[in-house]
């Protein structure tokens, strides 16, 4: 009788425990499975395909693991896709173009964004939230439309050229579009809010009595700016730059629509390899190289900086 009771107790305790665990695990499982299946799995497949050979078949790549005549396991890893990337001039130039365009755009975003963020942070509290909302509002309108707006302004029969021609300032339309300049403008326009927001939140925290103190002690506005405002807004500066540079480097739509044929960025090369040449392995290896050499280092240093900052607070 006694034994039966304890057994019952143990079973009911176990059942309760199991119920608790399964409810909890179910909650963890749903997003976890989703991310594993649709994010981690695709990345692994991407890595796998980057090591296979391109063939004319469907799907257009060879499998790297083969089971030959039932007993032999053959693993074939091709490094050719990566070798090509580091020897073929087209890909090297693609990387250089991407870095240059993303770098220039980030610098310009900083030059435009910093004074704006500063002005917003120093404006009266009432209009500050409205000013901030006005910065985000274009971000909510479609991305393609924002790119299209610049096509309309810059194209040979676009707004700027028509206006200049109308006032007889030029005879033939200027080539404003289809060059890296237009691609930069498009990127600056699309990603400026990402620069302004982190800068604003850093500048807003600056105690302005520090600057008054600098003036009282005889510092010029320029010294005050470089020795107080810039160092104190550095976290926002780094965060904003990363937020602009990382999406800009892999950007496809803007260079495709505004950059013309010669602005071949990595994003466009991946697209062309995939849709144009049907070369899945090359597209995959280009992606992996972009991630390993450009995106990961920036993201990791930025994360480290954030953690350092948090531990300081």
């Amino acid at each position: 009788m006694e034994m039966y009771r304890t057994e019952e107790k143990v079973i009911s305790w176990l059942a309760e425990k199991a119920k608790k665990i399964s409810g909890r695990n179910l909650l963890i499982a749903a997003p976890f499975i989703w991310i594993c299946l649709f994010f981690i799995c695709p990345c692994l497949i991407l890595i796998k395909i980057s090591f296979s050979e391109s063939v004319i078949a469907s799907p257009p790549y060879t499998s790297i693991i083969d089971w030959i005549s039932g007993y032999m396991l053959q693993i074939r890893i091709t490094l050719g896709n990566y070798m090509v990337l580091f020897t073929d001039e087209m890909y090297i130039r693609g990387f250089i173009t991407s870095v240059l365009i993303a770098g220039t755009s980030t610098a310009c975003c900083l030059i435009i964004g910093f004074p704006m963020a500063h002005a917003i942070a120093r404006s009266s509290e009432k209009i500050r939230s409205i000013l901030l909302m006005l910065v985000v509002l274009p971000f909510w309108t479609s991305f393609l439309i924002r790119v299209y707006a610049w096509i309309m302004l810059l194209s040979p029969c676009g707004f700027i050229n028509s206006l200049l021609m109308k006032f007889h300032l030029i005879d033939a339309p200027l080539q404003l579009m289809n060059n890296s300049f237009a691609a930069c403008i498009g990127i600056i326009y699309a990603y400026l809010p990402f620069m302004i927001f982190p800068l604003y939140s850093a500048i807003e925290k600056i105690d302005y009595s520090l600057i008054e103190a600098a003036y009282d002690l005889g510092g010029s506005p320029i010294t005050a700016f470089f020795s107080i405002i810039v160092p104190l807004s550095a976290p926002g500066l780094y965060a904003g730059s990363a937020l602009v540079f990382v999406p800009a480097i892999g950007e496809f739509v803007i260079p495709e629509l505004l950059g013309g044929a010669q602005t071949l960025t990595i994003g466009r090369l991946v697209w062309n390899e995939f849709f144009g040449n049907m070369s899945w392995p090359t597209a995959a290896s280009l992606s992996i190289v972009l991630l390993i050499f450009v995106v990961f280092p920036i993201v990791f240093t930025q994360k480290r900086r954030e953690i350092k900052l948090l531990s300081k607070d």
């Binding site: 991310i35 994010f39 892999g250």
Partner: peptide
């Protein structure tokens, strides 16, 4: 890993995400 993988699509270039997902779907 979970936290990292959830946040990763934020920094993943769209081209790469599209490409890898298509490869998954084909597989």
């Amino acid at each position: 890993i979970f936290v990292g993988a959830i946040a990763a699509p934020l920094v993943m270039p769209e081209v790469i995400m599209g490409l890898s997902l298509l490869m998954l779907f084909v597989g």
